[in-house]
Computed example of a mutant assay.
Amino acid sequence: MENINIILNNKEYKQALEKLSEYERNREFCNHTIEHFMDVSRIAYIMVLEEKLNVSKEVIYAIGLLHDIGRVKQYEEGIHHDIASVEMSKEILKETSFTDEEINIILNGIANHRKESDNKLEEIIYKADKLSRQCFNCKAEKECYWSSEKKNFKITY
């Protein structure tokens, strides 16, 4: 998991996590913390193993760790976080030893994590993002704008 540790120790990544924590300090709804990023990564990894997809653990974790990092730019500049996450990730991934093909898979997974997809990995990332949310334990669940179909009311992974 060398590349994952490079991401976790990247200066820009660490600063973005700190800013996200500050921006969402008083947020009632789901926060975008390292815990959320790790939950998405772990759930996606389990799903990839179950589906027997040939995708490396590091690629999956990279997508999970980076998929919402652009929320900082969404708060600061109004840029949709999926687009901003891709742009920020391009810079962060330069420090890693991922191949160009792996980087392309990572960036596509990040770019498409907010919508259902015909691409199996991207669909898994979308589902893992939703399954990571503990709507069944959320104090603000009734005020949440997510539809009841989108909310996670059970433990699957």
Score class of each variant (00 low, 15 high):
55 V>N: 04
72 V>C: 05
71 R>K: 15
45 Y>Q: 08
61 Y>T: 08
61 Y>A: 03
43 I>W: 01
55 V>I: 15
46 I>F: 11
52 K>D: 10
49 L>E: 13
52 K>Q: 11
51 E>A: 15
49 L>F: 06
60 I>S: 00
73 K>H: 12
69 I>N: 04
44 A>I: 09
45 Y>R: 10
72 V>Y: 00
43 I>T: 03
75 Y>P: 02
40 V>M: 02
63 I>F: 01
67 H>A: 05
63 I>W: 07
73 K>E: 13
52 K>Y: 10
60 I>N: 00
73 K>V: 07
64 G>C: 13
52 K>E: 14
62 A>S: 15
43 I>S: 02
49 L>Y: 12
48 V>Y: 11
40 V>F: 08
57 K>F: 06
54 N>Y: 08
59 V>W: 13
45 Y>E: 12
58 E>P: 11
54 N>Q: 14
74 Q>C: 09
70 G>M: 00
62 A>F: 11
69 I>E: 11
69 I>F: 12
68 D>G: 03
46 I>M: 13
70 G>D: 00
74 Q>F: 13
71 R>Y: 07
65 L>Y: 08
50 E>S: 10
68 D>Q: 02
47 M>R: 10
76 E>A: 05
42 R>G: 05
51 E>N: 14
52 K>V: 06
45 Y>F: 15
49 L>N: 15
62 A>N: 12
48 V>S: 09
66 L>R: 05
58 E>I: 03
63 I>G: 01
53 L>I: 05
54 N>A: 12
66 L>P: 13
72 V>F: 03
56 S>E: 09
73 K>G: 02
48 V>D: 04
63 I>N: 05
59 V>S: 09
68 D>R: 06
74 Q>V: 04
40 V>E: 00
40 V>Y: 00
48 V>R: 11
51 E>K: 15
41 S>N: 08
43 I>P: 02
50 E>P: 06
72 V>R: 04
56 S>Q: 14
63 I>H: 03
59 V>F: 09
53 L>D: 11
77 E>N: 14
75 Y>C: 06
77 E>W: 06
75 Y>S: 04
68 D>L: 01
43 I>H: 03
54 N>H: 09
51 E>Q: 15
60 I>E: 10
49 L>G: 04
47 M>F: 02
75 Y>R: 03
56 S>R: 14
60 I>T: 15
